[in-house]
Computed example of a mutant assay.
Amino acid sequence: MTEVRNVAVLVGNGLSIAFNPALNLRAITTEMVERMKAASDEGDDVVTAMKEIAERALPAGVTSEDDFEVLVGAFGAENRTMGYLERLAALTQPQDDELQAAIQLVANFAARVRDTGLSHVLQVIFENSHAYADDAEHLHSFVTAVTSSFDGRVSLSNLNYDTLLLSAVLTVCNMAEVADLADGRTKVSIVDGDGDTVARVPLLRETRHDFSPKHRVLLLHLHGSITYWAGQEGTVYAKLSRDHLEDLEQWQAVRDGTTGLRPVVVLANQRDKSAHVQEFPFSLAYEMFVDSLATSNHWLIVGYSFRDEPVNAKLQAEFNDRAREEKPRVLVVTHGDDLAVHVVERAFGWGKEDGSSVDWLTVVRTGANGVENTAEWAEFIA
């Protein structure tokens, strides 16, 4: 009997940009900044102060102009720092209620600033989470090529918050064989301020055992999604539909502080990101991502810059696992010449002393749009 072939797919922002240019980091950051300015009488000063705080932690010469993760993530870091200070104050000056109240006040302010920036970022992404007719057709062709070229499990690990890939998967695949982190078997009610139920939404899966063997196509949002939300206490996690997000006006509600729900995404600097991904539900997505790498001899990496340390650590660990009889076949799809081969090799722990990587690594530089029609693709799936 011929053994089924699995494929592990890692998707970065480059895939979203290929099918909707409005989802590039600079465009999102620019739009977020403009919306924050418009929302405040002192908009320019507020944004300037945010940038100064964010750039304080950046290397010399680097700015936050092009990266909303740097700008908004800085306030997640500030909030965590305030939490550490609060614990320190409780230990060293437990009787000083005024000090602890002041620290909590600053922590709450940092959290509000982060919520404001985060809600604007995710709203921009939400509004642009679509591909126009021609681009959608090309994205569907790409997803069809991936899911039909491998008869085993197809694991799509997505670093984007948008729903472009989700929409394409649901369009071209058999619904019965598709699963993301949402578990349709269990649902929770969302209630308004009067206690009335306004929606019933699926909870997120809690363990790997909540995925069925019949789920051949997995969509794993490693860093969360615009559709993943949780209560502020962090005990209930659920998936909202696009209709819910529109009808419930969730983005504005977060900014106004009129909802107890918060979006579930990893939006942090690189230092804090490693801690975030160890928390649920990202920990489950990463567990399934690692499993996909371990059980696949074909790794497809699309639109990823190889700058995410937690992701690179998993790639390197599985690539160099001594239990693996041979190196996986790796196809990296990028656009242009910015991504150097040595950067890719280094992410896998492959150095000059290891010789040429040509036996296991292929890099396509024409982008995701139409990659399934290239000779490199034909060789990859052979």
Results as ranks from 00 to 15, higher is better:
Val11His: 04
Gly12Asn: 03
Asn13Tyr: 02
Gly14Met: 00
Gly14Thr: 05
Ile17Arg: 12
Phe19Cys: 11
Asn20Gln: 11
Ile28Thr: 04
Thr29Ser: 08
Thr30Asp: 11
Thr30Met: 03
Val33Glu: 14
Glu34Trp: 02
Glu34Thr: 10
Glu34Phe: 05
Met36Asn: 11
Ala38Asn: 14
Ala39Asn: 13
Ser40Tyr: 06
Asp41Ser: 02
Asp41Pro: 00
Asp41Lys: 00
Asp41Leu: 04
Glu42Pro: 00
Glu42Val: 05
Gly43Pro: 01
Asp44Leu: 02
Asp44Tyr: 02
Asp45Arg: 00
Ala49Ser: 11
Lys51Ala: 13
Lys51Ser: 12
Ile53Tyr: 03
Ala60His: 06
Ala60Ile: 07
Glu65Leu: 01
Asp66Cys: 00
Phe68Ala: 12
Glu69Lys: 00
Leu71Thr: 10
Ala74Phe: 01
Phe75Met: 10
Glu78Ile: 05
Glu78Tyr: 08
Asn79Arg: 13
Arg80Tyr: 15
Arg80Thr: 15
Thr81Cys: 13
Met82Tyr: 14
Met82Pro: 04
Met82His: 12
Leu85Phe: 14
Ala89Ser: 13
Ala90Lys: 09
Ala90Trp: 07
Ala90Gln: 11
Ala90Ile: 05
Ala90Cys: 04
Leu91Phe: 13
Pro94Gln: 08
Asp97Thr: 13
Asp97His: 10
Asp97Leu: 06
Leu99Asn: 06
Ile103Met: 08
Ile103Asp: 10
